[in-house]
């Protein structure tokens, strides 16, 4: 099983497009809007080194391996979910 976390901001169009894409391919995800929680903003930077959104974290729950996808990247998400 893979867990999907998406770091977003409220008005970010690419975040909305990414969420739309995940819904289209029926992948459940947890949204962490970094505007609403400063710990999530820190976590975003620690995990990705990014000061930008969206960032998508795909975690393999068996191996614990984390895949970080930066930006709106349907192909990257699809490959990381395989």
């Amino acid at each position: 099983m893979k867990k999907v976390i998406i770091y977003t901001t409220t008005w970010c169009p690419w975040c909305q497009k990414t969420k739309q894409f995940l819904n289209q391919i029926n992948v459940p995800f947890e949204e962490r809007n970094v505007e609403l929680n400063e710990d999530w903003a820190k976590e975003l930077f620690e995990k990705s080194g990014q000061l930008g959104v969206p960032v998508i974290l795909i975690i393999d729950e068996e191996s614990g391996k984390e895949n970080v996808i930066i930006g709106y990247d349907p192909l990257g998400i699809t490959q990381a979910l395989k």
Binding site: T9, C12, P13, C15, V34, E35, A41, L51, G52, V53
Partner: peptide, 8 residues
């Protein structure tokens, strides 16, 4: 993209 990233 200010609307995306300014909140950070």
């Amino acid at each position: 993209c200010s609307v995306c990233d300014m909140p950070l």
